[in-house]
Amino acid sequence: MAPADAPTHPAAPTHPGDRAHGHPAADASPAPATPGKVAMWLFLATEIMFFTGLIGSYIVCRGGSPPTAYSNLYPPTTPLDRLGDSKGVVLGAPGADPARAAEAIAAATGKGEAAIARVLAAAPHGVVNGLTEEGATKLAEGLNRLGAKAEVVSLKTSSWPRPYDPATNPLSIDLTTVNTFILICSSATMVLAVSAIQRGRKAKCSLYLLATVVLGGVFLGVQVFEYHELLEGRIYPPGISPTGHFRPGVSLFASCFFTVTGFHGLHVAAGVVTLLLVFLASLTGRFSSRNFAAVEYAGLYWHFVDVVWILLFTIVYLV
């Protein structure tokens, strides 16, 4: 076993001056494979298989979802074979007097107070479902007379929540695109940190590491905000969730979404903690152009987390 402070990256041939250490030449060339690096790549291979289990399940769950699993009017997996002709009213805005809008909805549907409160809270995408064509037209007209914004919609089904469809999909693509930018930037600062320490620029390396930690933290913060909005902060129409909240149990999509992004988030959190420790270690000046394994390995892990996010962003949010 080599002592812990042995150089992990013996001098590269571009620095002939470093050769004067008396090491035999065969050992002084850069070691392309150190045990740490082999283990890191093996670990990443196991991580690939781990995410294969999750993402592969997501893909087949999505691909195998029956064409009527999700609809703009009814909660996921509601049997729709006798509801094909039913109409709904989308409430764009409850108008100046929400109480009267609520009364009108109650009169038209006989729904309970809590259900109607959810419809109002979900505006501009509130949905009143279970109406006949006649009832829907009447309710929409009544609501529009009260100053509310309402329109009649018919049942539209899909096998999976469609992106940009507020009736079935609660995810904000705009927010997540920004978040993707942030994570990609953090990957770039990470590689710049490695490149800086390879050239012996310790201060620059620490700075880039700090930037990576901050960007990673911002990504996590945005994700926590997103989770809070989904779980608690907002009320969603019935096509997303029967309870108004988007929680892991409300649909297979929700289960997949929270599991896949949740485990990715845990990986990001682990990466941020690791990078924070590496950053603090870099402040002590222990990394140099010949000893930067910790920075390099943390970087590999961080880029891997970024790659997984690139795939998740596409598969979960955009497709």
Partner: peptide, 11 residues
């Protein structure tokens, strides 16, 4: 183990 076990872990 390295290639198969992570899938069980996810399951």
């Amino acid at each position: 183990q390295a290639f198969a076990l992570p899938v069980l872990t996810s399951a």
